[in-house]
Amino acid sequence: MAPGKKVLIVGPGFIGWAVLDLLAKENYEITGYVRRKEHADQIKASGATDTVLGDLNDKALITKHALSHDIVIHTATADHLPSVEAILEAVQQRAEKGLSTIYIHTSGTSLIDDGAAGAYKGDKVYHDNIVSEIDSVSDNAPHRQIDLAIVRVQKKLREKAKIAIMIPPTIYGYNPHHGRLSIQIPVLTRYALKHGYAGYVGAGLPVESNIHVNDLARGYITLLHHLESTPANTPDILENPYYFCEMTGDNEPSWQDIASLIGTELHKAGLIPDSKTRTIPPENYGDLFMDFTPVAIGLNSRSRAVRLRELGWKPVEKSLSESYIQDELAVILKEDVDRKAFDGYHGVVAS
């Protein structure tokens, strides 16, 4: 479909590497913007045409390379404004020269966190075909300031660019060719191995939609093909940049359910004394996500991928529990680390 189409992926890590695999199969010309030479070699083996070694804060370098690409996909993090500004600068410069750019940014459904902090199951469900639902969230919501910066440029350029924001929920899954795990559930597992029990924030009642990383990657490809084939002046492009990508519908597990899954499997393996789950005390949040723990694993975040499904996308991968039992747990248990020294996750959680 796409000989001659040049794609720049900024941060082809857990999500972006899976997207890169699919793009390579369709003969896109792919440049990966990465931090490490080792990872550059890995994505070249997966089909990247070229790589650029650079830091997300190097705005000039990102803009330089985005200027020469028809398509830019940002999957590095949902919360890094300088790299987003660098891409938007390139999109605007290209528009001034009459060159249209497709830009897909990765946000996350912490955007729609209701502040439950583990206390209750929320009733609010957000649908991506109703733009007012997403625009109703606070400007101070997680990821929102980044998303708004993108929306402002989209409204300014209108049909001169095609800009979309992918908003994934909790991501799970494992690709043995990449050797990378997701974040929330592996961190909860490492916490359980350190402390001897599987836990949750507060009462563990909130629920969050979820998606397998490979289904999410197919969602990006479905979205890309839609943007490529749809005129830039259509209402679908101009009026709504948001796309959810979830697989569970109304069957989202609660965080207590996820703790139960972890506890059951670790107890079965003889690694914790029992499968009983319990509330994690706030003084232990340093072994999870520090001050962001109530947002990362205590939120209600219920989304429906109406738009991708209308485009023909559908999830086909293993469920969260199947993937955990069959794939991810074995990888976590093989980690060569001092489990008692585990002190949580210090990065940013995209969802």
Rank of each mutant, 00 (worst) to 15 (best):
S254W: 09
G219V: 00
D236L: 01
A217F: 07
N251L: 13
C245Y: 03
D236F: 06
P253L: 07
N210T: 09
G249E: 12
G204I: 05
L224T: 02
T248S: 12
K268R: 13
L238V: 02
P235F: 11
E246C: 13
P241A: 04
I211A: 05
G199F: 13
F244A: 05
D236P: 00
H212P: 07
A198R: 13
E246K: 14
N210V: 06
Q256V: 09
Y242S: 01
D250A: 00
L271K: 13
D257C: 05
V201Y: 04
T222Q: 03
H225C: 07
Y197G: 04
A232E: 03
K194V: 15
V213T: 00
G270R: 14
Q256K: 10
Y220L: 01
E228V: 04
T222V: 07
A203G: 09
H212M: 03
G263S: 08
P235G: 04
A203E: 15
I262S: 08
V213S: 02
L223M: 06
H226M: 13
P273Y: 03
N233M: 08
L224I: 05
N251F: 15
N210Q: 09
N251A: 12
E239F: 02
A203F: 12
G219L: 00
L205A: 12
A203N: 12
P235N: 05
D250V: 01
N240D: 14
D215E: 03
N233D: 15
A198Q: 10
E252A: 14
I237P: 01
G204F: 12
I258M: 10
D250G: 00
H226D: 15
Y243A: 01
D250T: 02
K268S: 12
T234M: 09
G199R: 09
A232Y: 07
S209Q: 06
E252M: 13
R218A: 11
T234V: 04
T248L: 14
G202C: 02
E252W: 13
E246A: 14
S260T: 12
S209L: 08
A232W: 08
L271C: 06
Y243E: 00
L266M: 09
G263Q: 09
Y220F: 09
D215P: 00
G204W: 13
M247G: 13
S229R: 10
I237C: 01
D257I: 02
W255N: 02
A269T: 07
Y242A: 02
L261T: 03
A269R: 10
I237R: 00
I258G: 10
D215C: 00
T230Y: 07
V207D: 03
P253C: 09
P206L: 02
G249R: 01
Y243P: 02
T248E: 06
L223S: 03
S254N: 06
S260K: 15
A232M: 03
P253V: 08
C245N: 09
P253K: 04
I221V: 09
D236I: 00
G249P: 07
N233C: 05
G202Y: 05
P235A: 08
S260P: 09
Q256F: 14
